[in-house]
Write a protein that binds this DNA or RNA. Structure first.
Lengths: 197, 197
DNA sequence: TTGACAACAGAACGCGCGTTCTTTACAGTA
DNA sequence: TACTGTAAAGAACGCGCGTTCTGTTGTCAA
């Protein structure tokens, strides 16, 4: 048995294709068909090598399951400077999964579509989707989803003369100074925008 | 056998927890432990009901696999208006998976970190991550990653006197008018921002 | 020419798994 | 009290699956 080689990369690719369809790694017998291999024993050898390379692992039941690296798409060969163009630096491709990147605590995280343009100077546009982690408290400077007069609003949390206030990021909108207690729904932890094609 | 009920929702939740750890649905025997049930036969009944409710299905091998709805996090009970606060409209929770939402063609899509602030008026900030679909051509108005003088840049594609130009979204930066042919690397299809905690 | 090793093929075994069937407990209803 | 349906428990069966072992082919080096 040797190390992970280009041939294994082929098998990995086919396995990723199958997994993309079925979200599961099938039996050795069906993998024979997927890989174009006739013997189950060799399929096992291949999977073992893929696991040693860190792409898959086994559950307590002995079932093969993908690891993080299995899903990875390479993160660009080069950076894209939005400023003045610079040379292409060809760094080693980092790995990425958007969901896991943005969401640390799935159970406490919720996605909320943004409406209006009161936060446009913070680069938050109408139609964006906010990734919000539900929390009772927040720090000054955080962008929070707050409940004001039983209504939801997305603003920057600030303090003024000892009282919490909510600042829009748009000159055209007023600062909100709640008279009662300020109720925090959650804190903005991420933002998603989809451009229509 | 009855319809999907709150009890099934409990089982679903436990199954989601297990799946979050192992990215696979285990054997009936193991599920007995997961669900707190003693008989495999009843586990099967539960899974059958979950499949009828559209949460899971079976591969050609007969292996249980999750369906789209399985991963769904409810999309906020209410919208968060970034403009003036409005009343909470409690719509039915839509479903969401970020990766699938942003990426249609995984093989042609790449993630590139954005540097600089030349697109800041388009709400694209330094440190954002651009979701780019690799394409050879684009339309006027698209935000594209172009290659100018063997350097990458993110700009809005426009046309001026019959020639393609690249417009920054920042007054402080000049319009780029390539002398030779304009080479398109890809088109911006999404944007991701992560706020540090 | 021979040996070594990698890349498979193929057969045989035994346990685990899903399936099916029967039985039990319990709550509601009439 | 008897009936009905749901929610399970439990046993028994048989096939499929992973495992292991042995055999075969090809390639490169000495």
């Amino acid at each position: 048995m040797t190390d992970f080689n280009p041939k294994d990369a082929e098998y990995l690719s086919k396995l990723q294709d199958y997994y993309a369809n079925w979200k599961s790694i099938p039996s050795y017998a069906t993998l024979c068909g997927v890989f174009g291999i006739a013997s189950k024993s060799w399929v096992k050898t291949v999977l073992t090598r893929l696991s040693e390379a860190g792409f898959i692992e086994r559950t307590p039941d002995g079932v093969w399951v993908p690891m993080r690296q299995f899903f990875a798409r390479p993160l660009a060969e080069s950076s894209v400077p939005a400023g003045m163009p610079v040379s292409v630096d060809s760094g080693q491709g980092e790995l990425f999964i958007i969901d896991e990147m943005l969401i640390d605590t799935p159970s406490r995280t919720t996605l909320v579509p943004v409406r209006g343009d009161s936060m446009i100077e913070a680069g938050i546009h109408d139609g964006d989707v906010a990734v919000v982690e539900k929390r009772m408290s927040a720090n000054v400077g955080d962008i929070v989803v707050a409940i004001v007069d039983s209504e939801f609003t997305l603003k920057t949390l600030d303090k003024e003369r000892g009282k919490f206030i909510l600042r829009p990021a748009n000159q055209a909108y007023p600062v909100i100074r709640p008279q009662g207690a300020l109720e925090i729904f959650g804190v903005l932890v991420g933002l998603i925008r989809k451009y229509k094609k």
